[in-house]
């Protein structure tokens, strides 16, 4: 049972949970359309849309040409004029082709027009490394979008949140960017039936602890939980936070945890420099929680390189469980 909705839950994969959210939205809201490359009969590059085209037809599950800029712009224009488009980028890397429409238009139109319109577009970005697809199909660009006022940026880490955040994004009057880690698509988890939303802008404490805080995003949340188990056996009691939303960031949850533990590790897959960890760290440093820090902050992020092809190299450039363990141990021992 889901505490929020009272609905029964059953096991679904992350991809199935997203598809179920889109199915509910298409069934209950005529304004909803899906747009993207090969999301129709092909079912999407990662089979997220699956067979929805059979159920809702090509007028509502729309295969776009390979035109990321134009496609994103059409979604923005449609959102400004009454539709609720869910636009899928085949890989988040391809959003670089559409930055103009996302950054200059979707994010800014409301402000530029003094609040006269909203842009309720939802964009989905399959992101992250681990598939052997190398440098142009493996990036984690969420921090780019998090830098843009006017956008909301979420990173669901579980099937339940993947569905809940997508439905919340559809309820949201402003553009919401959903970064889905490709490796998570096949991960299973309990997902409540029916319509429910996961609040945007709210982090989740996945494990309570007293000795240090690990703020994690997306797939790194699972690695942080793995590490936490080992650490607990060693007598180190970490608190693991799943950030869930990159913008607007949940200050309260992060700061409360740091005030409690006095130690902070941020772990995220995007490139370390100028990334999410920098924002989380600065948020702590600028707040009263600074006075509760009892050690320097550690950021674990992607290496300063593109994602390599070789599988060992690919692993080496993003944080792994042993990296988290090492960081946590050195923090807990007061070695740094």
């Amino acid at each position: 049972m889901n505490a929020q909705t009272g609905a029964a839950a059953r096991e679904l994969s992350y991809a199935e949970a997203i598809r179920e959210a889109m199915d509910i939205a298409l069934a209950t809201d005529e304004r909803v359309v899906l747009m993207g490359e090969d999301i129709g009969v092909y079912g999407g590059a990662f089979q997220v849309t699956g067979n929805l085209v059979e159920k809702y037809g090509t007028d509502r599950v729309i295969d776009t040409p390979i035109s990321e800029l134009g496609g994103a712009g059409v979604a923005v224009g449609a959102a400004m004029t009454g539709l609720r488009p869910i636009f899928e980028f085949q890989f988040s890397d391809f959003a670089t082709l559409a930055m103009e429409q996302i950054v200059n238009q979707a994010a800014k139109v409301r402000y530029m027009l003094g609040g006269a319109v909203s842009v309720p577009v939802v964009m989905r970005f399959p992101a992250g490394s681990g598939t052997g697809a190398a440098a142009q199909h493996s990036q984690s660009l969420e921090a780019w979008f998090g830098h843009v006022p006017g956008l909301k940026v979420v990173q669901p880490a579980t099937p339940e949140d993947a569905k809940g955040l997508l439905l919340a994004a559809l309820d949201d009057p402003d553009p919401v960017m959903i970064f889905e880690h490709k490796i998570l698509y096949k991960m299973k988890g309990m997902v409540p039936e029916g319509h429910y939303t996961t609040p945007i802008g709210k982090a989740a404490v996945r494990r309570e602890g007293t000795d240090l805080t690990i703020v994690s995003t997306s797939i790194m949340m699972h690695k942080a939980l793995d590490a936490a188990q080992t650490l607990a056996e060693e007598g180190i009691d970490p608190e693991v936070i799943d950030l869930r939303t990159v913008r607007p960031m949940d200050r309260d949850t992060v700061l409360a945890s740091v005030r409690k533990t006095g130690r902070l590790i941020c772990v995220y897959e995007g490139v370390k420099t100028l990334g999410i960890g920098a924002e989380v760290s600065a948020m702590v440093a600028e707040s009263d929680a600074f006075d509760f820090l009892d050690a320097p902050i550690i950021r674990l992020g992607g290496a300063e390189s593109p994602i390599p092809y070789n599988p060992e190299l690919e692993k080496a450039v993003v944080p792994q469980v042993p990296d988290i363990l090492e960081a946590a141990r050195s923090l807990a021992k007061g070695m740094i």
């Binding site: 006095g262 600074f290 006075d291 509760f292 820090l293 009892d294 050690a295």
Partner: peptide
Amino acid sequence: DKVRATPRARR
């Protein structure tokens, strides 16, 4: 100010 101490220790 010139003592090396963590923020928590200072507080």
